[in-house]
Amino acid sequence: MEYKLRTEKPNITTMMEFILLGFSDILNFQWILLGIFLVLYLTILMCNSVIVLITRIDPILQTPMYFFLNHFSILEICYVTATISRMLMDLLNQKGHISFIACATQMYLVLLFGGLECLLLAVMAYDSYVAICNPLHYGLIKSPQVCVQLVTASWVSGVPVVIGQTWPVFSLPFCGPTTINLFFCDPSPIFKLACGDAFVNEIAVYAVAVVFVMVPFLLTVVSYGKIISNILKSPSARGRAKVFSTCSSHLTVVVLFYGTASTTYLQPKQNPSEDTGELISPFYTVWISTLNPSIFTLRNKDITVALRKLLSKLSA
């Protein structure tokens, strides 16, 4: 594979593009993988688009919970598009070349949408907490204005934070090799391509990531801790089951999201398994996004009813 280099100083070069290896080691299955991931991508687009549509047009779903679900589905579309669309193109033309600017842009978008999902999951957990533990004041606490402010604050806070993560990575000089053993640009493998000592930059990026992820994670854990405590205090087993069913879908998504993320990014550095990382990263970015719409809809009677109404109108 060819790649362009621009010489700035003797023996030091700045790379103008990287090579995403992705699934290049299994060339015989490129077209099969292309078909599988294309179907998954279209499924994610269709399912999340349907959720966005029905949560906007159905009068029953005009509540804070579905308002947040609407924005979460939009984020899912954006997050997966930032990763899988590039992978589909690479599988189609069997090339993994990505320019320096395109790689930085992709990393920025992946980190932004991933971070926003963390914040929105925390907001949704807080929404469940208020609905279950403080139902009499739910309408006052979760007014339409407050809901809009929470979503807006998530977006506004995410943009500068992710710029602070992306800049330290791509401000470094790179001198080869150019290959990244993933199908999208991620900070960890790119740091390994940098010339010289990138320790300070790595610490800066990961410190910001820890704060940006751990704060909403802890808020989510605290919210569900109080929810579970409230459920256990209920004297009726039927009442406990009913209350738990209202937040079980969101809790499942939280466990899958943080569980696969921790498995992907908290692997021991002493003997990292590149093959494992390559297999887990598609699961984290694609499989979970494929599961989320069904998790939110199959156990939700309001969404099921709204879907039936929509289908009946379309078939009429």
Rank of each mutant, 00 (worst) to 15 (best):
M1H: 07
E2H: 08
T13M: 09
E17W: 04
I19F: 13
L21Y: 08
G22Y: 04
F23C: 06
L27T: 09
L27M: 09
L27D: 08
W31G: 02
I32A: 15
L34C: 05
L34A: 07
L34H: 13
L40P: 01
L40N: 02
L42K: 10
C47L: 13
C47E: 13
I51T: 05
V52N: 07
L53P: 03
R56K: 13
D58H: 13
D58S: 10
I60N: 12
Q62S: 14
T63E: 06
P64Q: 01
P64V: 00
M65A: 04
Y66W: 02
N70M: 06
H71V: 05
F72W: 07
I74N: 04
I74H: 03
E76G: 15
C78M: 15
Y79W: 15
V80G: 10
T83K: 00
R86P: 03
M87C: 11
M87H: 08
D90W: 06
L91F: 06
L92A: 11
Q94Y: 07
K95M: 05
F100I: 05
T105M: 11
T105P: 01
M107I: 12
L111P: 09
L111W: 12
L112C: 11
F113M: 08
E117P: 02
C118M: 01
C118K: 00
V123G: 00
A125C: 11
A125N: 04
V130C: 03
I132R: 00
I132E: 00
C133T: 03
P135W: 03
P135E: 06
Y138K: 14
G139L: 08
I141C: 02
C147I: 02
A153H: 01
V162N: 07
G164M: 04
G164V: 09
Q165G: 05
T166L: 05
F170E: 05
F170D: 12
S171T: 03
P173F: 08
P177D: 11
P177A: 03
N181D: 14
L182T: 06
F183L: 13
C185I: 07
F191Y: 14
F191V: 09
L193G: 02
L193V: 02
D197Y: 10
A198F: 06
V200Q: 08
V200F: 07
V205Q: 12
V210A: 15
M214K: 04
P216N: 11
P216Y: 00
L218E: 08
L219F: 01
V221R: 01
I227S: 00
I227E: 01
S229C: 04
S229I: 01
K233C: 11
K233R: 13
P235G: 06
A237R: 12
G239N: 10
A241M: 09
S245R: 08
T246C: 03
T246R: 13
L251V: 00
V255M: 14
L256V: 10
Y258H: 13
Y258L: 03
G259I: 00
A261K: 10
A261M: 09
T263Q: 07
P268N: 12
P268I: 09
N271K: 12
N271V: 07
G277F: 03
L279C: 04
S281A: 10
S281D: 04
P282K: 02
P282Y: 05
F283K: 02
Y284K: 08
Y284P: 02
V286Y: 07
S289M: 14
T290L: 14
T290I: 06
I295R: 00
R299T: 05
K301F: 02
T304F: 05
A306I: 12
A306M: 10
A306E: 10
S312C: 12
L314V: 09
S315V: 14
S315K: 14
S315D: 09
